[in-house]
Design a protein around this nucleic acid. Structure first.
Lengths: 204, 204
DNA sequence: GTGTACCGGTACTCGACCGTATCGGTACAC
DNA sequence: GTGTACCGATACGGTCGAGTACCGGTACAC
């Protein structure tokens, strides 16, 4: 599933032989995502991205047909596995690690989700790209972690709070900026897990 | 604080003697908020609001100087007390009532928060209006409910999960559309309170 | 009846941005 | 060295929306 497999050093965009290197392409993607975070989706302009990366607008339009397709490509480039490798041996330990990892990504991802959150309701392809970049991978990895806890016998599969864990974590990450005025950092999230998630699951 | 006090039947906008009645004004506000929910803040046009309310754009610009000021006024008109009158005698009962009330407002308010969520980072006045319309009143009423639970001795003021209750509720309301693809209705929120919030607080 | 002031309608200016077209420069193939 | 194809720069067309200007109609005061 990941695109981490070893590619030829100069392979680019598969079908076209563009002179844009992998690294250069990633600069474009980083730039547009950063501008989306700062200014919002609507306010991002192709001129702006071109200027900030010191390339020509023509170059962008040669590679990607339209602004939405460009943004979708940028989102796809961003699929990473944030909770991979978490396995402390206990569910409580794993969830604390998840909280820490989520906290590290929280600011950027929250901004992105917020900035794109409405554009997404108008453009189905954008919606899918966003979900596959920022939501599905986390949910899947988290489900796996919970499943392991069940298999180890730490918790019953019927525990009613179990199904709400992903929503709880996503939720508090999105809610804190609105309620407290600051993003959810790793410390905050670990405290949240200790004070709320674990007690609700009947752990500790 | 509320503007619910009895006003003269024809009193309008205090300083100006506009021919726009209270009810007519509210139609403008409802229209712009609905368009924001459906199309997003940027995509809302003064022409569109004028057309949908069958008034002239001039009329809107006579009452409000700019589009942001118009939206701010619309938001201010929307401050209502959603959890007022909730007092079942027990904290668990109150929280279930809160969940039901929140679920009734959830769809519209979530859309509004999502649609304005980014515009808010660029316009401080809009940010304040949004917080005072959709966040502060709920937080305050919820704090009062929790405080009453403490005073009745149902729960200790030191209970670590206590401070996270508002974030939990706001969070799950905002997270469910992203995670499950549907808005948090009253049923869902009551189940959430029973499965997560109350156990985390050590109630039941 | 006369004056005033607001309403609706329309036409307008101005700026922004998407996407296209054009052109000179240049890296690379052969 | 010659050809090819992509790069950057710039200019352009088209669209759209904010905010303004103007104009005729009309309700209301006196």
């Amino acid at each position: 599933m990941t695109s981490q497999a070893a590619d030829g050093p100069e392979t680019v965009a598969a079908s076209r032989r563009s002179k844009i290197s992998r690294e250069r392409e990633q600069e474009f993607f980083d730039a547009v995502l950063e501008q989306i975070r700062e200014c919002g989706y609507e306010a991002v302009t192709m001129d702006g991205v071109a200027a900030s990366t010191r390339c020509s607008k023509s170059t962008l339009y040669r590679q990607w047909k339209t602004k939405p397709q460009f943004v979708v490509a940028a989102l796809r480039s961003r699929r990473v596995s944030k909770f991979a490798g978490i396995d402390t041996g206990s569910l409580a330990g794993d969830l604390r690690e998840v909280a820490r990892a989520a906290g590290r990504w929280s600011t950027g991802d929250t901004k992105l989700l917020q900035a794109l959150g409405h554009a997404v309701t108008q453009d189905a392809e954008l919606a899918m790209a966003l979900r596959e970049a920022l939501v599905h991978p986390e949910i899947a990895e988290l489900s796996e972690i919970l499943q392991r806890g069940v298999e180890r016998g730490e918790i019953s599969a019927d525990q009613p709070a179990l199904e709400y864990v992903p929503c709880q974590l996503f939720g508090v990450i999105r809610a804190r900026p609105v309620v407290d005025g600051e993003y959810a950092d790793p410390d905050y999230l670990v405290r949240f897990v200790d004070a709320v998630v674990l007690p609700a699951l009947g752990l500790t």
